[in-house]
């Protein structure tokens, strides 16, 4: 554990809780992509199956359970409790275009051919692109609520902080996992455009709207 990893995890946790609280408080999931949320649920499920097979620390297990619970909780709010507020007309990204190629890639580029390892690798590849339906939705509607912008910023920062963590671990522990590093860089790059808008608009008190 180092400061970059911890900050990344807390940023990730903040993002997930921010989204849950936003939906709960406003009794609405308008502007949130249900498809991205489905992809994140798949990501957490396939990655954290190791809850049953390997124990790292109480911290790790606790966070995994929180991420899984919050993710399914979000899906429940979006597709059941507040379903009428879900803006499915603007959530039109075809997620099979992300699900299938990630799956194929996880069979081609993987460290070890075991079911758990392939599922873990799949979760890494899918996570890298899981935000695309949400970013697509923002670009289609041309705007995002400020709280949604904070959510996206926290979620994007998390992997960027993990990249610093991997650089740190490379020098201090000789730890190097190219699969997770390349996917993490791709994931962070996808947010760059949004980061720019967030810094130039949202942080200056303006609403995020596209020109």
């Amino acid at each position: 554990m180092n400061i970059f990893r911890l900050s990344g995890d807390l940023s990730h946790l903040l993002a997930i809780l921010l989204l849950l609280v936003k939906i709960w408080k406003t009794r609405s999931c308008a502007g949130i992509s249900g498809k991205s949320q489905i992809l994140f649920a798949i990501v957490y499920t396939t990655r954290y199956l190791d809850l049953f097979t390997s124990f790292v620390s109480v911290y790790n297990s606790f966070m995994k359970v929180v991420f899984l619970t919050a993710s399914y909780g979000t899906l429940y709010l979006m597709f059941f409790k507040f379903k009428p507020t879900y803006d499915h007309n603007h959530d039109s990204f075809r997620i099979l275009y992300l699900i299938i190629p990630s799956l194929v890639l996880s069979f081609i580029i993987v460290h070890v051919y075991t079911v758990m390892e392939i599922l873990w690798t799949y979760s890494i590849y899918l996570e890298a692109v899981a935000i695309m339906p949400q970013l697509f939705m923002v670009s289609r509607t041309g705007e995002a609520e400020t709280i949604t912008s904070h959510y996206l910023f926290a979620l994007g920062s998390y992997r960027a902080l993990y990249i610093l963590n991997w650089i740190y671990r490379y020098y201090t522990e000789d730890f190097l996992d190219m699969i997770v590093i390349i996917a993490g860089i791709v994931q962070t790059i996808l947010y760059c455009d949004f980061f720019y808008l967030y810094i130039t608009k949202v942080l200056k008190g303006k609403r995020l709207s596209l020109p």
């Binding site: 390997s54 790790n60 995994k64 460290h111 390892e117």
Partner: peptide, 10 residues
């Protein structure tokens, strides 16, 4: 190098 199958991150 640590084996890649040591998954200690989230």
């Amino acid at each position: 190098l640590k084996p890649s199958y040591v998954k200690d991150e989230l």
